[in-house]
Structures are given as C-alpha cells and as structure tokens.
Nucleic acid binder design. Structure first.
Length: 575
DNA sequence: GCCGTTTTCGGCCCGACTGTTTTCAGTCG
C-alpha cells in the first residue's frame, strides 16, 4: 500500500530507487518532486486542472505516474518497483549508520528485508564477513537497532532544548559566547529533533572537544576527529560538536543550521554567481570573500537575511530574493495569552499566582479557561463554581489597572458538535476555546461536521489544539486542516497554536495557509501551572516557523484591542 | 528524472569521519 499523501509516496519511491542502486540524481529528483508537491497550497486544484507539470521539480515522467495513480488508484511503476525492492526495507533506513548501499548488500546477499531479520543476522555474526562490512559495522548496526527501538531516534524539542542550552552555557564560560551556538533543527525550532549540533569557533580545538567529551551527560564517544566530535548523551540523543576558525564562523553557522535543502539551494545560487560556498567560507576562484555575519553572507548572495526558523526551502529563498520575507513575530510582541487552567479544574495554581507569574513574563493580560462540566476527569467546572470564579476575576480586575484577566472556558466540543453549557452561561464569557477531548476516532467527515457545528456557535472564539495530536505519542484526529482553516475563516473563529511542546498544534506547516485565508492565530500555552506559561517560547518558535507576523497573532494586541476583537467576532457571528 | 538569460545534453553541493580498504565507499548533515 502506498502512503496516504502524494509527497510521502514520491519520497518512498525515491528511497526504494536509492536502495535499488539507481542513479543518485534520479533519486534526488523524486525527493525534490515530493518537496515541491508538499509546498503547493491547493494541490487538489492543481491536479483537477491538470497543471502538475507547471510545478518546478515535476516533469513529464513523474507527472504521468502521478496522474495514473490519481485516476486509477494504482501506479504501475511503483508496483513493479516494490516487486524488486520490498517495502519493508524502508524501515532499515531509520537505523543510524545504515544507508541504502549497505541495505542493498544485506538484501542481495542475505535476503534481509526488515529490522528483525537484520538483528538476528547481526547476532549470528553473519554481517561481519560481507563485502564492505566488518566486525565494527556489525556492532554499530546492533547499537543502531537498540537505539531506534528505544527512541525511534526522535525527541521533543521541549525535552532537548534546555539540555542544548545548558551545553552552550558550559562553552560560554570557557570561550567567547558570541562564537558558540546551538545549530541544526533546534535553531530552526523544529518540533521534533534527532540530534544536538553545537558550533564553536576557537583555535584550541583539542581543549574544546575535551570539554565536550567530559560533560556529565556524555555516555559514549561515537566519533572524534580534528574538527568534529560526536557523543551520545544520557537522554539517548546524539550531540555533535564542530570547531571552526573565527573567520569561518558565520559560514559554519549557516551550514550547520541547515536545513540541508536550504543549503543545497544556497550553494546552487553561489555557483551561478561563480562562487563556492561551504562551511569554511565563500570563495571566488579560490580566494575567500571576507564576511563577518550570516546576514552579510546572505546579502552577498543577493538575499535578505533569512531567520533560522524559515530555512526549510519552502519558498523563503525566493522570498528573500524578491524582498517578500515576512517580518516575523517575536516573543517581546506578546502582550498576553489565553488558555490557562487554574486549580479549580486540573491546573495547580490560583488566579493570583497566575497573574503574578504572567506579570513577571512581561504580559499584561491572561485569558483563564478551565475545563467545562463534561470533562469530569479534569475537574470540569459546574455553573456555581464558574460564577465564583467570575466574581473573583471581577474583583482582581478592579484592583489592578495594569493587568487584565479575561473570563473564558475550554469547552468540550461534544460529539454532536454542541458546546458544553447553555447560552445563558456562554454569554458570560469573554471568550470560549472549543476543544475536542472525546470521541477521537470519528470518521473524517463526521469530525469535520462536529467542528463546523461548534464553529457556528456564536460564542465559540478559538478552536483549541486543532488536531489533538500528541507529538511522538498520538496522531491527531482525522481532519483535513485545509478544511478546518476554511471553516475558521468562514465562521469567524480563531485557531489556537497550542504552545505546549507536546502538542505544538496547529502544525507550522499549515500556518502559512491560515495566514493566506486571514485566520488569526492565538498562541496559547495550555498552561496547567505558572511554569507552563513559559511554553509560550515554543509557541513563538512555531509561529515564526509558520511565517507569522505580529499582525497575524491575536495576543500581540493590547487587552483593549482584544476586547474589541472578541466583541466584533460575536457580532459577525450573530449577524 | 529534472532543468536551461551560457545549455534540449550534461550537469545536478560539499566536506568530515569511520571502517574497510591498501586508495576509497558509505553515511551523515
């Protein structure tokens, strides 16, 4: 069975071709085509109107195959390919240090088609004698299998970021902090990361790598050279240290921040200008061009500075060429936030504590939203308790001029799409976050109907965690985000960017689409304690990754402006 | 397999490190 989405389908074909030993440029062509497809906003429309070939990266050959698949549900090429190369080989690509060439050898000589067979063969010592293999390779494959079994090689940004910063701070103490950075997917604020990349500029690479090797978190040293050291940390994640000269630092910073695809395109641009770009510099006929910052390097290539979060090669380079890069929202732009739980439902802190913590973060308002009555498992609020909370909020608001509490609720969206209180109570809220907490397994059409009905409710303000996913834990419920965004646009509902690093939901890949549709985003911590408020940091990272500007975000507005927006929304919905 | 303001053919990003090799292929980012 081919995978659900067309881009994933093409990626899979690329991987299969790679393992078959095909021309690497052909392999890349499939991966490029997959990326190109995933960047198309309205793929259905492009397919319907037969304009696949107009997409840069899709030519006749791939377009014809896709059209066959769209029309018939089958792709002859894919079926033939999977007869030659079993699909189960794809899972072997997840194992560190095992790539397509070696997998092909394993398949051709030992008939190995999956991780189980590979582990067995390695334990039986049957890999060491294969061509290009040896005892150490066999050992590394076994370690790699252990590793993916334990972690699948993936970690939450929220789990890894603090550790990465701690490592950076350790280097700050022994060298110039300006020349130490955490790069890679962490700097790009990907929600899931696979390793930690640390870049340091310094002359004494021996001393720097020794410091790195000796960190208390290091369990194993995996590789060690003059400029690069790789270790495994106790959380199970791999960390790489690269040491470069001060002169090379900006180039290395760009290089190790990636993404790979972004870098590839940059080098292509350099090459067209008769320049060579690598992690050590920018060269013209072997002479290096002396530049001091990333921004200068971009400028020299004819580009505006591209913030790290955008470097995924999804249009940012073209935007930088034409001066159309967004002015990304910053943490300092946040004036308040919504979706905060108190001790009355499943949170731990009181209103006073929350106000105090929010003020410390520089916020001037918070929207309180405990769980609604159906959420008994989370201490959902009965109307009586609600009224007491409202009184308390009123009196706190009277006392404080420089801080405002908004009255809200995280209302369950019940299976039939209704909200969890009657109109009399709903009227009393400043805002309502509608969330799905039950009946996750509804069919797509039913789930979308359920959400649509909730959105039509005149009191619903924000759709909470739009897919309900838990990163590395649970897939979201079955909805087409494109439809959800259109529904939100049509019914004057905001979408939440749930800032919890376990969720980061709505996904940044859809934020651009929301922006185009004019759907405003609320960056909410879904905090259950005052400490949870700091998750806004991850929310901002994700918002930036999704090209969001200050004007796209509800909580960059002042409390007064927010009040007006809520009033206007209610009127629009009723009108 | 894709692409073209040098090109419809001949390119397609580049370097570090490891392990298996006797000079380099594979993997990774």
């Amino acid at each position: 069975m081919p995978p659900k989405s067309l881009p994933a389908f093409l990626d899979q074909i690329g991987d299969l071709l790679d393992m078959k030993g095909e021309n690497p440029f052909k392999v890349r062509a499939y991966h490029n085509a997959a990326r190109a497809l995933s960047e198309v906003d309205d793929l259905d429309e492009v397919i319907r109107t037969g304009r696949l070939r107009e997409i840069q990266g899709i030519g006749d050959a791939i377009a014809t195959k896709l059209e066959e698949y769209i029309k018939t549900g089958k792709m002859t090429y894919y079926e033939e390919l999977t007869k030659e190369i079993p699909l189960s080989l794809l899972e072997l690509l997840q194992i560190p240090n095992l790539g397509p060439r070696k997998i092909k050898v394993l398949y051709d000589t030992l008939g190995i088609t999956n991780v189980g067979e590979l582990e067995y063969a390695a334990r039986e010592n049957r890999l060491a004698s294969l061509f290009g293999f040896g005892a150490r390779t066999q050992e590394k494959i076994l370690e790699g299998i252990e590793f993916i079994k334990k972690h699948k090689g993936e970690f939450l940004l929220g789990d890894i970021y603090p550790l990465a910063m701690k490592i950076k701070e350790g280097f700050d103490k022994i060298t110039n902090p300006e020349l130490v950075d955490v790069c890679g997917s962490i700097r790009r604020r990907k929600e899931i990361v696979r390793d930690i990349d640390i870049l340091v500029a310094g002359a004494d690479s021996k001393k720097l790598s020794k410091h790195f090797r000796s960190l208390p978190e290091v369990e194993d040293v995996i590789a060690e050279g003059d400029t690069k050291t790789s270790v495994r940390l106790n959380l199970g994640i791999e960390a790489d240290l690269r040491v470069v000269s001060k002169e090379a630092y900006p180039y290395a910073l760009m290089y190790f921040t990636g993404s790979k695809e972004h870098n590839v395109k940059l080098r292509g641009i350099a090459k067209k200008k008769d320049l060579k770009l690598n992690e050590y510099g920018l060269f013209t006929n072997g002479d290096s061009v002396v530049l001091r910052t990333e921004a200068e390097v971009y400028k020299h290539l004819g580009l505006a500075y591209i913030p790290p979060e955008l470097r995924e090669d999804i249009g940012e380079i073209e935007a930088a060429q034409s001066g159309k890069l967004p002015d990304l929202v910053r943490f300092e732009d946040l004036k308040g936030t919504f979706h905060v739980h108190t001790h009355l439902s499943d949170g731990v802190d009181t209103l006073e504590k929350i106000v105090e913590a929010a003020k410390k973060m520089g916020l001037s308002y918070v929207g309180i939203s405990d769980h609604s009555k159906t959420a008994a498992y989370a201490g959902g609020l009965k109307p009586d308790t609600l009224r007491k909370q409202w009184d308390e909020i009123d009196s706190l608001n009277e006392k404080s001029r420089d801080f405002h509490l908004f009255k809200g609720i995280e209302s369950d969206i019940l299976p039939d799409g209704s909200l969890d209180y009657d109109e009399k109570i709903l009227e009393g809220f400043d805002f309502v976050v509608g969330s799905i907490h039950s009946s996750f397994t509804m069919k797509r059409a039913d789930m979308e109907k359920r959400i649509l009905k909730a959105m039509k409710n005149p009191f619903m303000t924000i759709l909470g965690h739009p897919t309900g996913r838990l990163l590395l834990g649970r897939d979201g419920y079955d909805v087409d985000m494109k439809n959800i965004i259109e529904m939100a646009a049509g019914h004057h509902v905001l979408l939440e960017l749930n800032a919890s690093p376990y969720r980061l939901d709505i996904d940044w890949r859809y934020l651009k689409m929301a922006k185009q549709q004019g759907v405003m985003i609320a960056i909410n911590p879904d905090a259950h304690s005052t400490a949870g408020l700091s998750d806004l940091f991850y929310g901002i990272g994700t918002a930036r990754k999704g090209w969001q500007e200050r004007g796209d975000i509800l909580n960059t507005r002042t409390a007064k402006e927010v009040t007006k927006i809520f009033e206007r929304m209610r009127n629009e919905k009723r009108g």
